[in-house]
Design a protein around this nucleic acid. Structure first.
Length: 524
RNA sequence: CGGGCUGUAGCUCAGCUUGGUAGAGCGCCUGGUUCGGGACCAGGAGGUCGCAGGUUCGAAUCCUGUCAGCCCGACCA
């Protein structure tokens, strides 16, 4: 960007310096540049020709598939089933729920025609005679079409609850996009449930935010804070929104998942009602909840380092890279043979819940045209949790070298690991890595958790990054004022379960009474 | 939507001020020397200079238009 603006200046004449010495931009030098380089060089995604839309590359998609698998299992275990609803939603549906219409109006892609006109020698154009009577919007979220459908599905209390999830893509026409964190089109899941009473729906709302918390911590090794959003930050159309908030390595917050209690808003907007046991008509109670490919952005920014991607083993597309070494075919052949043997042993390890009953994935690196250092660096860049090196010197001792990605560089490498038993050792190591990534991320997050009692102290601490717990009078005005002056928003009103003290106090801005501290941060 | 900027090789960019028919680094291909922490040498492939007009003997370069993208802001759960 800076270079671009310089372009055309007399000073920038001469060839650009060789930009790439193979090292990536460090987090300290330029955090967002670092992030984008990780995404690109780890082969996760790239910008497409379509503005704001990304191409998710096989490695990035593999992470998403693992996320899907983990989450889907948890959804099923809590009684949900999958279904699929249309991509297109009649514009009038969105209009039925006022808050939602207002919330999403400015970022909707609209389909107005159903045909193009192709004539020889003329540019392809929209056929003006093929205008839709009613424009369709491309779903930014599916509450409306789903509640229009539920209206027909729900007649009796016996039809409830409905516990449906859909895996889908949605479009939100954002002004500014960033790979994974905010793209015009993104992949997500959205759960939409209907319940016979308020209590059940509220329990569901809480249950699902806790599913997200569990997933974030157990699969992503990403600690999160859980609690409701402020009135100003909640989902349009919701009564309240619960969320999980993670803290990235630059101290900014990332909303990683939301679970909304929708009350009877959508049921009423779509005339959906049922008869209860007593024969009375009632409106069902709703929830919706979602996480998206944004989680991949969070995953990257939670663990990765200046050597590249760090991926927790439970979500890693490849668990183990084996690098056979040797200068000649005579040296390489036994190294490759040993690599293949170890790979087979790793793949044959007993499967368990940790890897969703799938085998350990192993890749044997045969890039013999590259130097060993290049090959090591490449696997580090791509975030492979464990790298094994097998060369002539190891084979003399029937051993190998095992490097763990969470401890970068040579420090994480252990020489002389006996090949006999190496598979079991690595299997254990993968679990250690998963655990220590969470521990490390938690320590980082906790260190970034600050408390402020006065507005001056708040502003000072905010500059250090991280969450600042402060008292707030609960008003929209104060929240807006803080945001306008500091760019910080209320990320959530933390539940006691987060381990933060919940005690009354006075608002740091107005001095009015406050029930508890809330978490402020600058956010993505 | 306001303000600024940029479109030249797969990528990052130089060349434009002062018009003469296109370059560098990286990447890619071939061969060779290397090889336990990001090697090197030699040769090679690759570009209708965003698009459309105009000026000119001649346009990447000057002019007009147009499209696209980027940055700052606004907006954005």
């Amino acid at each position: 960007m800076a270079e671009k603006q310089q372009k055309g200046n007399a000073q920038s004449k001469g060839n650009a310096p060789a930009k790439d010495d193979n090292k990536i931009t460090t987090r300290a030098a330029n955090y967002s540049e670092w992030y984008l380089e990780i995404v690109r060089r780890a082969g996760l995604a790239e910008n497409s020709d379509v503005r704001g839309c990304m191409v998710i590359k096989p490695t990035g998609y593999a992470i998403w598939e693992k996320m899907q698998r983990g989450l889907d299992r948890m959804f099923k275990d809590t009684g949900h089933v999958n279904a699929y609803f249309p991509l297109f939603i009649p514009m009038s549906y969105l209009a039925k729920e006022e808050e939602m219409a207002e919330g999403f109006a400015k970022e909707c892609a609209v389909v107005t025609h159903y045909r193009l006109k192709a004539e020889k020698g003329k540019p392809l154009q929209v056929d003006p005679t093929a205008e839709l009577e009613e424009p369709l919007i491309v779903r930014p979220t599916s509450e409306t079409i789903i509640w229009r459908t539920y209206k027909d599905w729900i007649q009796s209390y016996r039809d409830l609850p409905i516990l449906v999830n859909q895996w889908a893509n949605v479009v939100r026409w954002e002004m500014r996009t960033r790979l994974f964190l905010r793209t015009t089109e993104f992949l997500w899941q959205e759960g939409h449930t209907a319940h016979a009473n308020q209590q059940e729906a509220e329990e569901e709302t809480l249950r699902m935010v806790n599913v997200y918390k569990k997933f974030a911590e157990e699969f992503m090794a990403m600690p999160v804070m859980v609690g409701p959003k402020s009135e100003g930050q909640k989902f349009p159309g919701a009564v309240y929104t619960l969320c999980i908030e993670a803290m990235m390595q630059d101290g900014k917050a990332l909303q990683a998942g939301t679970s909304h209690f929708l009350g009877q808003n959508f049921a009423k907007a779509f005339d959906c009602s049922f008869q209860n046991e007593k024969g009375q008509r009632e409106s069902p109670w709703a929830t919706s909840w979602g996480v998206s490919t944004r989680l991949i952005g969070g995953l990257i920014m939670t663990h990765s380092d200046d050597n590249g991607l760090v991926c927790p083993p439970r979500l890693a597309p490849i668990h183990v890279a084996i690098v056979p070494l040797g200068r000649t075919d005579a040296e390489r052949a036994p190294a490759i043979a040993a690599a293949e043997k170890l790979a087979a042993e790793l793949r044959g390890m007993p499967r368990d819940d940790f890897f969703s009953y799938e085998p350990i994935t192993v890749k044997i690196d045969v890039m013999f045209d590259k130097q060993p250092g290049y090959r090591y660096a490449e696997h580090e860049l791509r975030g492979v949790p464990v790298r094994v090196e097998i060369g002539p010197k190891d084979l003399e001792k029937s051993a190998c070298a095992v490097a763990r990605r969470d401890v970068p560089g040579k420090e994480g490498k252990q020489f002389g690991v006996p090949l006999d038993g190496a598979a079991a050792h690595i299997n254990t190591l993968l679990r250690d890595i998963q655990a220590s990534l969470l521990k490390k991320a938690k320590a980082y997050r906790d260190a970034g958790l600050k408390t402020a009692d006065t507005y001056a102290e708040f502003q000072e601490k905010l500059e250090l990054g991280g969450f600042v717990a402060a008292h707030w009078d609960g008003t929209r005005e104060t929240e807006d004022k803080v945001q306008a002056e500091t760019k910080a928003t209320i990320r959530c009103i933390p539940f006691p379960e987060n381990g933060l003290e919940v005690a009354p106090g006075v608002c740091m801005v107005t001095g009015a009474p406050s029930k508890q501290r809330v978490l402020f941060a600058r956010a993505y």
